[in-house]
Design a protein around this nucleic acid. Structure first.
Lengths: 172, 172
DNA sequence: TAAGATTGAGGCTTCAATCTTA
DNA sequence: TAAGATTGAAGCCTCAATCTTA
């Protein structure tokens, strides 16, 4: 890179390569893990994520918004996902007495059984395809980078929400 | 890990952490990049992938299967995506004289314009959120690991297909 | 008005089934 | 029969709009 020229709107060939290799690896890994989990336990990655978070929650229940924060998901995604999982009997929606606008998402007995089965079944795949494919150095680098990405992007989301609120305020 | 004990169906807390951190970073990054591309150029990541590959192809066209291989996608995904992109005027399907079963996916003039615009618009975001968030060491580690993942999983897909063909042979 | 949450539409992605040509 | 490709169904995911309660 030539300083001052700052051609940020162009990528070098090796930069493109890194990007495309990473995107491809990403997709293959996600697909392989999803297939394995589906085949061995009959649940999806998305369901797995919800189940694991709820299992660790006090009383095995969370407010919809808390669940969204814990997973880093949009609220509407949580809502749709919970609807599907309610149909499968893994979770239940219950009213929140403390706040009439709120909803509790509660793990059912069936959901508890499913998550235990899934954690056992899926741990081997995560080790096999994710952990075992990286060296200790790579694991450290990937962990540090992932954290950096989260710290980079999450504040932007918060800032965007704040700005939206301010704009809404001004416009209204 | 205690050798011999080999409890591969259980993950240590720090292994779970790495997995969950990585999944979360993944999602945030993909969302941020997709939003930026959509906002700046009106096309999606999936469309971007197809356009870039076709632009580099001889005659700006590829057989459907070649496109799938180049992207690492399933054939049916390519078919659905091409249908949507045909509706937007970015690509055209044309018959293949050499093989009556085949289909050419051809970039249109409109598609060519779109990909140039998108590459300019998107390169900055890829630099900002992907390349600039990692150190040189991390970039090397992530590149090496991504390659390892691809080399690990792609042969399995090929093997699965071969087995399926053999099974189909035996069953029929 | 704003916060918590849901809904509907539409694009993304996979699987299984199918259609056509080799 | 097999290869190349498409289709339909169903789950995943986001955005914009909406509904209800604070």
């Amino acid at each position: 890179m030539i300083p001052g020229m700052a051609e940020t709107r162009t990528l070098e060939p090796d930069e493109w390569d890194l990007w495309r290799t990473w995107v491809r690896a990403q997709r293959l890994l996600a697909r392989e893990l999803d297939r394995g989990l589906q085949r061995d336990t009959g649940i999806s990655q998305a369901e797995f994520g919800v189940l694991v978070v709820l299992r660790d929650a006090p009383g095995r229940k969370l407010r919809a918004g808390e669940l969204a924060d814990a997973l880093g998901w949009e609220k509407s995604r949580v809502s749709h996902q919970v609807t599907r999982m309610e149909n499968r009997g893994f979770v239940e929606r219950t009213e929140c007495e403390a706040d009439g606008r709120g909803t509790w998402i509660q793990l059912t007995a069936e959901g508890r059984r499913a998550v235990l089965r899934a954690m056992r079944g899926h741990a081997g795949d995560i080790r096999r395809f994710f952990l075992d494919t990286m060296t200790a150095d790579q694991a450290a680098a990937i962990g540090a980078w992932s954290t950096a990405v989260i710290d980079d992007i999450e504040p932007r989301c918060a800032a965007a929400e704040a700005e939206l609120a301010a704009t809404g305020d001004g416009a209204a």
